[in-house]
Nucleic acid binder design. Structure first.
Lengths: 230, 230
DNA sequence: GTCTATAACTAGATAGAC
DNA sequence: GTCTATCTAGTTATAGAC
């Protein structure tokens, strides 16, 4: 493999190329927000970016790939906003709620075309799937956020749980996203209500894991996670 | 409303119309299985059904609507197969496992293009979404199956739980489907392993709900379900 | 080699005649 | 109910400029 000229190698991307790429991505994001995914044509994107369709396809393999820019943006904004929110408290429930609610805040402006976005991400073979190897970076960043939630908290739980909890909380977040996508209430207030209700429950459940009768269950769950991951 | 000629009123569908509709649906199913969703064109479907494209669109509003036939078929086959499997035992865990494994069996032949199928169903606005009002019938049939699992079993649990459990088990089934879609192992054996592992855990958790310390948690969960449903 | 553009292709969907 | 003709938009082929 002497394919040193491959586009994914940053060393070979020229400045001009980067500018064009950025122009296309920006045009796409603007149009997606203005008209939604379906009503945004590749021709319109290329047009606004001041390039030809063919050129747009040189940088983005498909229309779906243009969505990735959003994905990344939410991720980055959420990480920053959550970081702020985590500073205020060491109570586990407060920290968890802060991270989840912060996500809803950040994602709010994307909600209108989130359905299409989600549709794209739901396909297992899509690089946008939260379970895909292409999403590994974003996924691990997100899990890392929940690791912070746990580690900076006052939570006293068995070490096995402490280790597995971040991944479980990330799954919870995926569930919240699923609900959010289907939530047509004003300002996604039903999702916010769900978070406020589910957080104390999770807090209670996690703390209950210390009860003698729960040891077996905890073991089963960690075993389950381990085997699912392989 | 004097729209007595509307197509959705079975009394007004002519025999010929029904035959054409069936021919199109059958052609689509054959082709989906032979080549997958993407490689099956509406032209090919119309062709095999011996009708024009325009005519195909008279009966099915979009290509996605042709997928609905699969959806329904799995539903019906699963209900029948599960019915058989439920006859054998009154143990809750056995009954639950039977219903879940039966689904994996029935769905196996669809797995190859399940990704595309799932993608379509994942869009919140899609009539195929398991949460959509159009899917209400299928959803309730499925929940009914889990009601049978609970009611025909030896399970001794609080009435609140007994009432909410079928819907929760249906959600578990949705989780299994999610895993299954992403499961590329031979014969979906990883999904089968997941089911075999998760069923005893659910069984244990449900029975634990009788413990005094769990009463509060059970109340919280039922409250959560109620508010989410509204 | 990296970029960019034009023309053409494909397939889902619609309009309108019969 | 059924057809043909047409439209639309994602995508690709390919030629050529920098």
């Amino acid at each position: 493999m002497t394919d040193t000229a491959h586009r994914s190698d940053p060393a070979n991307r020229s400045d001009r190329g980067e500018q064009t790429r950025a122009a296309i991505a920006t045009a796409a994001q603007e149009l997606f927000r203005e008209r939604g995914y379906d009503k945004t044509t590749m021709r319109a994107v290329a047009d606004r970016a001041g390039v030809s369709i063919g050129n747009a396809y040189y940088y983005f393999a498909s229309k779906e790939h243009l969505v990735q820019a959003f994905y990344d943006q939410i991720q980055v904004e959420h990480a920053a906003a959550a970081q702020d929110a985590l500073g205020g408290t060491d109570k586990f429930a407060d920290r968890l709620r802060a991270v989840l609610i912060t996500w809803v805040d950040v994602a709010e402006s994307f909600h209108e075309f989130a359905g299409k976005f989600f549709k794209v991400a739901a396909e297992p073979t899509s690089p946008l799937s939260p379970f895909s190897s292409e999403s590994k970076g974003a996924r691990e960043a997100s899990i890392g956020l929940f690791r912070q939630v746990v580690e900076g908290s006052d939570l006293k739980v068995p070490a096995v749980i402490r280790a597995e909890l971040p991944e479980l909380l990330w799954l919870l977040q995926m569930g919240v996203v699923l609900f959010w996508v289907h939530d047509s209430s004003d300002g996604q207030k039903r999702t916010r209500a769900l978070v406020r209700q589910v957080v104390p429950l999770v807090d209670k459940l996690v703390r209950l894991s210390r009860l003698p009768g729960m040891r077996g269950v905890v073991g089963d769950i960690t075993e389950l996670i381990r085997s699912v991951r392989s």
